[in-house]
């Protein structure tokens, strides 16, 4: 990173050669190729994923795959705020909890249909996202990190103590399965295969939503904020509006994942939404490369899939995660799939 920057400076007024692109590394090139997959390739890939439950017989393996999908949705949501807009959020689990508890309470207490609780959870997530986004917009990255950390903790404390609503640490159990269809034709979603299709559709929705918004005027404004917010403002980007929008969009996706979690587990308790949960979610886009959609997907496979494979060492999982975060930032801050970036240095 340093070298290329120096080369550019020494280039003076001459245009520097474009070979930076060749140095981008195999993984980034691979990601680019994956993204440019032809239509047929994409359909083939989709078919493979749709037939996955037929090929995999083991319930355990399906469970792991479902979890990977769940974390893809979570991490993609966080990627909007961190990767696109460049705002550090260490409280994403709060939005996740919002979705999970909304679905759990509405289904259990009020007998609402799962399909209505999903938009309800997402709406509540958006409200919370705006509530945390709006007042903290002026804050610089490390402050924002601290505040979002505190916010995540507040949501956890509330979930733990508001006995009347959340039943506190005992959690809410026996959340019913969602149904597809009406009346006599209702099919319960209660097998691993059915849950897989449910979360897979959520993943597809998330990917499409992220790609569409990223490529839109809004996405462009977000990346402009990430690069230089003062200049973005001069260029006409309403910082308050767009940062809040980014938080809200991210929160909606987090809540979506939460709704699924509630029905999949049939149980929610505050322990699923601790700070560690937020940290795990954060590492996913970091491994993959902040801002990169294929990177986030692979990041989820690595972060959620690998610890399951090395189950024996699961006690050491968070230790490894911590060490990994440090090493990654020192040696490959752009992530496995990220483009090599020019980054503004922080001046101490």
């Amino acid at each position: 990173m340093n070298k290329t920057r120096l080369d550019d400076l020494s280039g003076g007024s001459q245009a520097t050669s474009g070979d930076n692109f060749l140095q981008q590394g195999v993984m980034a090139a691979l990601a680019g190729r994956l993204a440019r997959f032809s239509g047929i390739g994409k359909i083939a890939l989709l078919c493979v994923f749709l037939m996955l439950p037929l090929m995999i017989q083991s319930n355990y393996a399906m469970r792991v795959i479902i979890y990977i999908c769940l974390y893809i949705v979570l991490a993609m949501g966080l990627n909007v705020v961190m990767g696109f807009t460049g705002l550090l959020n260490i409280g994403h689990a709060a939005f996740y909890a919002t979705g999970a508890y909304t679905t759990a309470i509405l289904m259990k207490q009020f007998g609402m249909s799962f399909w209505l609780t999903v938009p309800a959870g997402m709406t509540l997530g958006v409200v919370l996202g705006v509530a945390i986004g709006l007042p903290t917009l002026r804050l610089r990255d490390d402050y924002l990190a601290m505040v979002t950390l505190g916010f995540g903790q507040i949501v956890y404390i509330v979930a733990n103590n508001w006995m009347g609503l959340t039943r506190g640490p005992r959690g809410i159990a026996d959340i019913p399965s969602p149904f597809l269809g009406w009346g006599d034709w209702a099919i319960p979603i209660d097998s691993y295969t059915a849950f897989y299709y449910l979360i897979f559709s959520f993943v597809l929705f998330t990917i499409f939503a992220c790609i569409r918004v990223r490529d839109s005027r809004v996405g462009l404004a977000w990346t402009a904020i990430r690069e230089d917010e003062d200049v973005a403002a001069v260029m006409g980007v309403n910082l308050v509006l767009y940062k809040t929008m980014s938080f809200a969009f991210s929160a909606a996706l987090g809540a979506l994942a939460g709704s699924f979690f509630a029905v999949f587990q049939h149980f929610v308790s505050p322990n699923s939404f601790t700070i560690l949960e937020s940290v795990i979610i954060i590492t996913i886009p970091i491994i993959g490369g902040l801002g990169s959609i294929p990177g986030t997907i692979v990041g989820a496979v690595i972060m959620i899939g690998l610890p399951e494979i090395f189950r024996a060492a699961s006690e050491y999982r968070m230790v490894v995660v911590g060490a990994f975060m440090v090493l990654m930032m020192i040696f490959k801050p752009e992530g496995l799939f990220g483009k090599k970036q020019f980054q503004q240095m922080y001046k101490a």
């Binding site: 990346t223 402009a224 990430r226 690069e227 230089d228 200049v231 483009k339 970036q341 980054q343 503004q344």
Partner: peptide, 10 residues
């Protein structure tokens, strides 16, 4: 102060 990691067109 161009946006460093955006393309020229962007």
């Amino acid at each position: 102060r161009p946006f460093s990691n955006l393309s020229v067109l962007q």
